[in-house]
Design a protein around this nucleic acid. Structure first.
Lengths: 228, 228
DNA sequence: ACCTATTAATAATG
DNA sequence: CATTATTAATAGGT
């Protein structure tokens, strides 16, 4: 039978009867109100709320859903209007993650633009605090160029470096943050945000793709602690 | 002199004369309008705009500033209201970065919760596709446990792994994105956002701090390409 | 999920 | 940056 989408209750794919609310503004908009019986005072409308953590769980979840939706919409609009790239990472109270935008690309870009101190333990000669004679940091040197006697050290240092890569992201200084939220900002002066500190960093170096090594291998970025 | 903040034009710290607009809603709110001479129709008010890239540079920048401010405010409110953690990374058209929230912590968390395939080239025995006899992946094994004959391979693999860590972030599959913006989404169906895919991942493993190795060393997360 | 009264954001302007 | 007319978001209810 070809009469699809008549009164079927099962959802197939875009029921044509519903088609989208598609409000047509300022064009016989209030006509429906005239024709149908008007519900007098069915809601109190939007109420003003205080910006503090919502106690009631159900209500909080509803608000989270709604406002997150709104936030992402705003972000999308801003992105389009201004040609900006926006990424949002959101963790709900129970650590569910919701993200918006090319988070990974932006994270990469963000990380590239915010170099930071990292704790490493490379030992003596191999990484004596900085550059070597060739002007490269020790971790930049080709493995082959490492002297034989430094190899043990190098291996350890590289291992530690790898470990520390995990730690690194959590330890960036907050200098260039627009707003550094406390972990759970229950009472935060929301009045005016310090939107001013525009860290003007180098705006070049866009080539963050490439590097095609050989075979594919599943590698979690963060390995679980090997030994405990 | 102790009479601070009287009529000084230099900004010290919170001039008490200005004190904040502090609009008091529904309480003699329209009184000023009565007392002062009302400006009759000075602006056309807010106009509806189409969501497409704003051509005029100046106007675009103004909008970027305003809406970014609004976006961050919304994010802050959402954070407080729902006890959520929110991080926003924003790159302006000319790659100026503006961020909101504990981006670094959230990025770390985000990365931890989105393990991904990574291209690596560890070669033969050391990383023959996965686990070894001890149930650990090759990169999880202590350096000492690597057999002597695999050491060269191991070193190379670790080096490649380090290199690939740089590449990794840009290559995550977009499966768990709420919305995957095209690089410059000039015409994007903004109608309704697919806010549904809530990737429910493990909500444990919060310990992403620790690891205090020895001496401090400045290490950029991404090293500039060593040799070119 | 849909509705609607109301608040909040903001485009245009000075 | 201040103002304001208007649009857009949304709190509370169904």
């Amino acid at each position: 039978m070809e009469d699809v989408g008549e009164a079927s209750t099962m959802i197939t794919c875009l029921p044509p009867a519903k088609q989208k609310p598609l409000r047509n503004p300022n064009l016989l908009a209030n006509q429906k109100k005239e024709t149908t019986l008007k519900k007098p005072r069915t809601t109190k409308g939007r109420q003003k709320i205080e910006i503090k953590e919502i106690e009631v769980e159900n209500r909080r979840q509803v608000t989270f859903s709604k406002r997150r939706s709104g936030l992402f919409k705003k972000a999308a609009e801003l992105s389009v209007l201004c040609g900006a790239q926006i990424g949002i990472i959101t963790f709900s109270r129970c650590d569910r993650i919701y993200s918006f935008g090319n988070v990974d690309t932006l994270v990469d870009k963000y990380i590239r633009k915010t170099p930071v101190m990292l704790r490493s333990n490379p030992g003596g000669d191999v990484a004596a605090g900085g550059e070597n004679n060739d002007g490269l940091m020790w971790w930049e040197r080709a493995v082959e160029s490492v002297p034989e006697e430094d190899m043990e050290e190098y291996k350890m240092a590289l291992s530690v470096l790898r470990e520390n890569l995990m730690t690194r992201i959590s330890q960036i200084s907050n200098d260039r943050m627009v707003e550094n939220l406390p972990a759970f900002p229950n009472e935060m002066a929301m009045a005016d945000w310090k939107l001013s500190n525009e860290n003007m960093m180098a705006r070049n170096d866009r080539s963050y793709l490439g590097n095609d090594a050989g075979l594919d291998l599943a590698v979690p970025f963060m390995s679980p602690k090997p030994r405990q």
